[in-house]
Design a protein around this nucleic acid. Structure first.
Lengths: 335, 335
DNA sequence: CTCCTAAATTGCCACGTTGCAAACTGTGAA
DNA sequence: TTCACAGTTTGCAACGTGGCAATTTAGGAG
């Protein structure tokens, strides 16, 4: 049986309340008393019972970070940054995985609400704005990504339309003429995919290039495997293109692999680009031209904003847009 | 203010205890009462207060999974599997990151002990067996990896010596004669590195090949960057080798990148192998020959064993060894 | 109609902590 | 000596829940 504050008090010969004062660094404790209590704490290996403390205070100092999958490098990298930011403010982070499935995203809204966490950072994939109001959680929520634009909820993201627009323009400027897009969603509901497609179309239009629906490759999963499969499928159908704008890095890595299997040189015959700037995109062969969102900034303002909301629940919920950079690497070198 | 069991009771016109019975699916509740209580729960959006419940029961139904870094694909993939296994038993998982730093690993042993979690799955890097006994946590612990072999603690792992032995032998059998190793640890304390080095030496010896210390490349971090840097350094020093046994996949990926920078064909002139079989190693170019540990099995038995220990704290702690497979891909094709 | 039994419901209490306010201590000034 | 006051310590209560055991209710048998 673990020691409680009473055991410590008894051993130190003080009241439980004094032990609490020591543990919580209350100023008015005689130095000698503090030492004695500390000794008792060490001897018994006493640790405060978080459940009891939180029950009393109504706060847990735990935040939840819910993403589709931790095995997506973008999310695990972000999770590391968020954990670091939260820790700096004395919070612990629980990572949860939704699989990108709407029901489970709704489940997170409802269950993490069970007084487990003080706030929730959610990166939704299938969740709709209506779900958010229908299942309004009891704790503050900060959204990541542009999946949902909804008044009343803070959203931290980069401008996907502009970002994909920029990278598409980069391909145009480096001489590509038949640019395909990879990562459009066949089933409706994943807004980031729509926004990225929009950015792609915008840049084509701005350059006076025709939009060819055949050049849009669909996939409902963002993984290396999905990227490879989509490109192999396109190749089998004899699709002709000289560049591929992928809607995230792992899709691009899968695509590069597929092109390698087909014996098509990258960037010699086809240029490939991604989004996310995961660690791998620096080191893969060829290294990947991509959009590097300010992950550090996203993590920090998501946490900061959430802590603000926790402190002041009815603060105004304004969205936060973060910057990104176009990182040009080998995979988009002019042919 | 969130609704409590009392609010629900009042609205439904029953006692708080009855609400508790409904929530916990106690059998002896009249169907009509149950319906009425359920309606009140829905109306108020009542969620049980986990802190209160856990305080009462002394359990949190939360497990901790502590790894060096979640951004290491091996760990994020494992974390997903562990989370899935735990969820199947009604447990939630909190992932924590230690940075592989001994002090922080000790910190995890002590702090997660604050009645936050019912058990801990720890993948240590710098922790020593003595730390484990000196800071013996109040909750059951299952270790992952072969860092610590200590009676009294369950360890779930594959046989690193044999695994690296197998992959080294594979290189020998495919005609490589000057095989370098990448990932030895210059500072003592990381046992997996030692074991892997041992496996490498064993296979050289078994084949009657000399062990050349110059062919052992050191690095204290396992990342793509570290892998690349080490290989570039070796190349600058004019080291001559025709194969590279890397002590994990990300090191191998960094090495492949470095060789690409140097214009050295893989596997044409140098074969490269890894360990872990992360998703990327299937899709990188060239795809990576590696050791694929039974991650699913590791995750499942770590969780299963931990739950057993939670149920029966003084059960015998026997280690569990899992299988692995040698996956031969492009990066080790005969020259 | 009574009695017995099982089903359904309830009250009381403690889990370990901290907010609150009260109480005690010691020091120096009047 | 008394008093004020800052510094230090304490007792009480309550956070929301579920274990326990007791009580009430319903149903069926005699």
């Amino acid at each position: 049986m673990a020691a409680s504050i009473h055991d410590v008090a008894q051993l130190a010969g003080v009241s439980p309340r004094t032990v609490s004062n020591v543990v919580n660094d209350f100023v008015h404790v005689r130095i000698e008393t503090r030492t004695r209590v500390q000794a008792a704490i060490d001897e018994l290996g006493y640790r405060p019972n978080i459940s009891a403390r939180r029950l009393r205070q109504g706060k847990t100092r735990i935040l939840a970070f819910a993403v589709p999958e931790l095995s997506q490098p973008y999310f695990s990298e972000l999770s590391e940054l968020i954990e670091r930011a939260a820790q700096a403010s004395g919070y612990t982070v629980m990572a949860a995985q939704t699989g990108g499935v709407r029901e489970r995203e709704i489940g997170i809204l409802r269950d993490f609400d069970s007084h487990i966490v003080d706030g929730l950072i959610l990166s939704p994939m299938s969740l709709q704005a209506a779900d958010l109001t229908a299942h309004r959680p009891n704790v503050p929520v900060v959204l990541i990504g542009e999946q949902i634009s909804s008044e009343g909820f803070v959203d931290v993201a980069i401008d996907n339309v502009r970002a994909v627009g920029d990278i598409t323009r980069h391909l145009i400027e480096t001489g590509r003429t038949r640019i395909a897009a990879l990562g459009a969603y066949s089933s409706p509901g994943y807004r980031s995919a729509d926004l990225r497609l929009e950015g792609y179309r915008n840049s084509l239009a701005a350059a006076g290039m025709p939009f060819d629906p055949a050049l849009v490759l669909y996939t409902d999963v963002y993984s290396r495997q999905a990227g490879r499969d989509a490109v192999l499928r396109a190749a089998r159908q004899g699709l002709d293109f000289d560049a591929l704008v992928c809607f995230n890095d792992v899709l691009a890595l899968g695509a590069i692999r597929a092109l390698a299997d087909l014996g098509i040189p990258v960037p010699g015959r086809i240029a490939v680009t991604g989004i996310d700037d995961i660690d791998d995109s620096t080191y893969c062969v060829p290294s990947l031209t991509t959009i590097s969102p300010d992950k550090e900034g996203i993590a920090q303002s998501a946490v900061a904003r959430l802590l603000e909301l926790i402190a002041t629940p009815d603060a105004v919920a304004s969205d936060i847009e973060h910057s990104y950079r176009l990182i040009v690497r080998e995979s988009s070198a002019p042919a």
